[in-house]
Lab assay of single mutants.
Amino acid sequence: MTTFKLIINGKTLKGEITIEAVDAAEKEKIFKQYANDNGIDGEWTYDDATKTFTVTE
């Protein structure tokens, strides 16, 4: 398992979430669903070196 981080830079929601997953593709799906469930629609980036997804509205 690898630890992945999501950084949220939303208009109404900001924060960080850290979760373990098998791979980045699995985690991306979970993070995007979390963002969608919380009304966050923005630009996504991924840094493989730090295993960090960022979504910015």
Rank of each mutant, 00 (worst) to 15 (best):
K29G: 06
E57I: 15
N36P: 01
K5V: 11
K29P: 03
E26P: 06
F53I: 03
I17D: 00
I40R: 01
A35S: 03
N9P: 01
E28V: 10
T56L: 07
V55C: 11
I30W: 14
K14F: 13
I8C: 14
K51P: 01
Q33A: 11
T3P: 02
L6S: 00
D23I: 05
T52C: 07
K14N: 09
E28W: 15
T3L: 12
K27E: 08
D41Q: 12
A24P: 11
A21T: 10
K27H: 13
I30C: 13
Q33S: 06
V55H: 03
K11N: 09
V55M: 07
I40P: 01
D48T: 05
L13G: 09
K5F: 14
T12P: 05
T3Y: 12
L6C: 14
D48W: 07
F53L: 05
G42I: 09
K29Y: 12
T2L: 13
K5L: 10
K11S: 10
K5Q: 05
T12R: 07
K11L: 13
T52R: 01
N36I: 14
W44H: 01
K27S: 15
K27L: 15
Q33E: 06
T56V: 08
K5Y: 15
V55W: 13
D41Y: 14
K11E: 07
G42H: 03
T2A: 08
L13Y: 14
Y34K: 00
K5P: 02
T18R: 09
F4K: 02
T12E: 10
V55G: 01
Y46V: 01
A49N: 08
M1G: 07
T2H: 08
E20R: 13
F53T: 09
T18P: 03
T45Q: 05
E20H: 12
K51F: 11
Y34I: 13
D48Y: 07
I30V: 08
T52K: 01
A35T: 06
F53Q: 00
I19N: 01
K27T: 15
E57H: 10
N36V: 12
D37M: 10
N38W: 14
D23G: 05
N36E: 12
E28Y: 14
T12W: 11
N38F: 14
Q33W: 08
I30E: 04
K11W: 11
L13Q: 08
E57R: 13
Y34V: 04
Q33D: 04
A25D: 10
G42C: 13
F4E: 02
I7F: 06
I17Q: 01
D48E: 09
K29H: 09
K32H: 06
E16Y: 13
E20V: 14
D48I: 08
I8A: 00
K32G: 04
I40V: 06
N36H: 13
E20N: 10
K27W: 15
A49S: 08
N9E: 04
T52G: 02
E57Y: 14
L6P: 01
M1Y: 13
G42T: 01
V22T: 11
K51V: 06
D37P: 02
A35V: 07
G10E: 02
Q33P: 01
A49Q: 09
M1W: 11
E26S: 10
T50Y: 03
I8M: 06
K32L: 11
T52V: 03
I30F: 12
D23M: 07
M1C: 15
D47K: 00
T18I: 11
D47L: 01
T12L: 12
Y34E: 01
T12Y: 13
I7W: 04
T3W: 12
T3S: 10
I30P: 01
T2E: 06
A35D: 00
I19H: 02
F53H: 00
I19V: 07
Q33Y: 04
D47G: 00
N38S: 07
F4P: 02
E57L: 15
Q33L: 06
G39F: 07
I8E: 00
G39I: 04
I40K: 01
E43L: 10
G42P: 02
I7V: 10
K5E: 04
N9A: 07
G15R: 15
T3A: 06
Y34L: 12
